[in-house]
Write a protein that binds this DNA or RNA. Sequence first.
DNA 1: TGAATGTTGATTGTTGACAAAAATACGATA
DNA 2: TATCGTATTTTTGTCAACAATCAACATTCA
Lengths: 235, 235
Amino acid sequence: MSMNARPIGGRRETLAGEVRGEIERMIVAGDLKAGEKLNELSLATAMGVSRGTVREAIRSLADSGLIDLIANRGAFVHETTLDEVRSLYDLRGSIFAMACAASARRVGEGLETGLLAKLTANLDAMKAAHGRDDRTAYYDLNIAFHDMLLEGAGNPKAKTIYDNLVKEMHLFRRRGLSLPTNIAQSIAEHAAIVAAVDVGDAEGARLAALNHIESGFARYMQLLEDTPALAQGAG
Amino acid sequence: MSMNARPIGGRRETLAGEVRGEIERMIVAGDLKAGEKLNELSLATAMGVSRGTVREAIRSLADSGLIDLIANRGAFVHETTLDEVRSLYDLRGSIFAMACAASARRVGEGLETGLLAKLTANLDAMKAAHGRDDRTAYYDLNIAFHDMLLEGAGNPKAKTIYDNLVKEMHLFRRRGLSLPTNIAQSIAEHAAIVAAVDVGDAEGARLAALNHIESGFARYMQLLEDTPALAQGAG
DNA sequence: TGAATGTTGATTGTTGACAAAAATACGATA
DNA sequence: TATCGTATTTTTGTCAACAATCAACATTCA
């Protein structure tokens, strides 16, 4: 019997787990702003659970980088500085590069048979979205592209860390980190990655991936310069 | 008045924080073996704190990778598989490479003035330790070497992640991950990294670092092959 | 006036108790 | 004897109360 039924009606995950998810959602969505304090009692009453449960959720969230914990003072939504954005990009780039190299290696070894088709399809869809200037579609496809390569690497921990890094970046004051800029160039960089993965060229994939993230950082810095009015809340 | 008095009497960190540290220590030291279940009540009574406090400590430790949490079943010391060791090496290598590249860049830019002297001193001390076959000294110097480069990168998050990865590796059944093998070659690789950092060659430092970690992985795999008797507890 | 010192209200830290779930022990049955 | 179902025990999940700490304000004294 293939048992992957999900619990019906009530919950299966623990309450604290749900609360954690909700807090994380509120942070990423911007309901809780960077620097804001998380009041245990307020959250508890708002969600209809006990303070201890909220506390547990906050603790489990602290290590992810989204929350800063100060003893006897409380939990605060992390404020990401520009220096940190640079650091996060460096980290993200190195992990993404590793993942692309691993994906290329695995494709070359005959594992990951479906990956290439999916990457190519994504690339085509991206070009189409760009053609009709559909930003929303492009945004989603872009995330999917990176996810595929992270998963193709066969390194779940890498994906977890990568996702946390991206979430933490969103806490940077002058948002806009997800605003697409210079889509044509970005697509070309994606194509270079896919080409390297295609022929199982791990080192080529690594360099193309690194270049892609670093270019993305450069594009973002450019955007910041060009748009001094890019204030917080620009989501 | 120069105020650097330390808190007297009791603790400063929270109780849960201390418990967390103690549990982490027990795991890394091997007092709690991989796969073992963490019983909240046992730990609480053993440490003389309440169960809730232990619970909080466990939750805050879960994201680090040392502990697996299963709802309604409890917390278990993570069992690292051989596949995971490979994945962890990949991640560790990519982060270390990034850190070395960043250190080289910063040295080239005139930041990190003291770094080079420290690296060179470490290298010399390592050669000396190797000469008199002092494994313990070599072991500590090796850790210090990597730490310096991680810190020279000016990327605290990278160091945190790196440290967690190393801790998680220690949970691999067939330990010996810290047994030094082929010290001469390892020292030569360190020297190559230092040389690249010295002249501010970021790309060279990245490649040398990547090569160092990958060689380390290869050496470890060799050790596993040569030492089938390398059972758990070999620490 | 203004810096140091009490005082007060709010918030976090810690605990023990109760509820729910899982693990275990134990017969009954085929 | 193996397996299933049930009762019992153990362990985790959640909660509410108490203690410790902190931030803000009021007060004192130079």
